[in-house]
Structures are given as structure tokens and as C-alpha cells.
Amino acid sequence: MNEKITLYFAKHKILFILLNLTYIIVLAKAFQMIAYPSADFSSALTFDRIHFMLFGLEDEIGGLMLTFYLAFVAIILSFIGGSLLGIARWSGIKIISIPATMFIELFRALPHIMVIFWVFFALPIFFGVFFGVKVTSSALTSAIIAFTLFESAHIAEIVRAGLNSIPKGQFEAAKTLGMNSWQVFIHIILPQAYRRMIPSILSQFVSLFKDTSLVYVIGVVEFFRAATIINNRIYMSFEILSFIAIVYFLCAFTLSKIATQLEKKVEKQLNS
């Protein structure tokens, strides 16, 4: 019975999506009526407020746009940093692998919100103490630095796992062709390792996207903070927070579906 249903829906994908949408809308409405009967979405979500939450204020980037900006910049920086750290740790060359390991383990163990706080509050002090330089940090810069710190640690582990997953036979075969270690690494190991890492890195990006909400605590006016600012004025938390929950869900869900599609494409390439 269930196999038949699954097969039917695999063929009629549009019908399946419609069924899901109806089911979701029914569930959501039921939830709202039970949990919070007096919800008033239309007065809570005016055009101006939605605009603020999505785009921020007139003269600067904010809201959901800032969320995406922050996520993109952070993932690129942490990809670079994480690759260097991961390769350093994997290399086994003590002088670089030990500091790399210490960094990775420290920033993997710390709660992200703590790192965010401390970059914002401590960085000026840090620079003041050790370099004697007076630095003021903007919240956004601190956010980017903080994200780079802990995301690099996570990506370093993904890189290390990717490198470890290459079978020994690959090294041996390349060496028998006469390549030196450096050439083996660049031409044989790295490309294969990065292809295997793609799914994990993509899912780390979705994770980072969700984590952007944490910069709320240092005042960066991205999507979540924008919503709480509005909520503090109008005190309609159910409506506002439902709205951002749904938008976050749609963005993260779409991103992860795109990631899955990309994964499948890469797998096809690998196997053809």
C-alpha cells in the first residue's frame, strides 16, 4: 500500500507538492487557532515592517540581505582559513599541525555565541594589550571575524576528514609514477578530497546561515535583530516571530535542497 502511494507521488510531483502545501497550511492554521487565537497578521506585518526586516534601513544594508551578505563573506573566509588549518593539521608536520589542532579544538568546543561576544568586547582590549594599538570594532566586522574563527574550525575538520578519506592506494600509485609529495598533494589528493567534501561544506553553509541569527547579541541589524526591533515596538511576537520563522525555514530549506541537487550533480560527474 505504502509503496504504491510513494510511487504514485514520485510520478506526480506537482500533486505531491500541492498536497504538502495544503497539509502544511491546514496544520499551521490549526496550530494558530489553538495556540494563539487572537493572531492578527495583517496589522503586524505591514509593508514597511516587512521591508525593514528584509532590507534594513534606507541608507545601509540590513535585514535579510545583511544575513545573506554575512553568510557569504563568512563562508568564503572560513573556507580559506579552514582549508589552511585542515591541511596543516592533516599534514602531521608538528610545527604547523600542533598549533592548528589547538586552534581547531578550541573553537570547536566554544559556544558560538561566546565567540561572538568575545570578539566584539575583547578584540579592542586584545589589540590594546599585545600591540598597543587602539582599535574600535564595528559590530559587523566583529561578527565576520567571529564567524570566520569558529567556522574555519568546523571546515578544517571537514577538510581533514576529506583528506583522510582518500585511499592510501592513491598516494602509492602517484608516487610510483615518480611524483614528489608536493605534486601528489596538489594534483591527486586535493581535487579528490574537495569533491568528497562538497556535501559537508554545503551543509555547513546552511548551518552558518542559521547561525547569523546569533549576531543579534552584538547588535548587528540582520534579519533576526530587525524582527526583534519591530517586536519591541509593537509587541506582537507571535505574528512577527512566526513570520521570520517561516522565512528562515524557506531560505534554509531551499538552500539545503539546492545543496542536495549540487551533490547529486557532483556524484554523477564522479561516477561517469
Binding site: V206, K210, S213, F224, L241, S242, A245, Y248, F249, A252
Partner: peptide, 11 residues
């Protein structure tokens, strides 16, 4: 899974 944890807590 797709809704950030902090949003869930606030909600």
C-alpha cells in the same frame, strides 16, 4: 531543523 534555534527559543 531549518529554523534557527534562537528564533525557536524567542518564539
Amino acid at each position: 531543523r531549518n529554523i534557527p534555534l534562537i528564533v525557536q527559543m524567542f518564539f
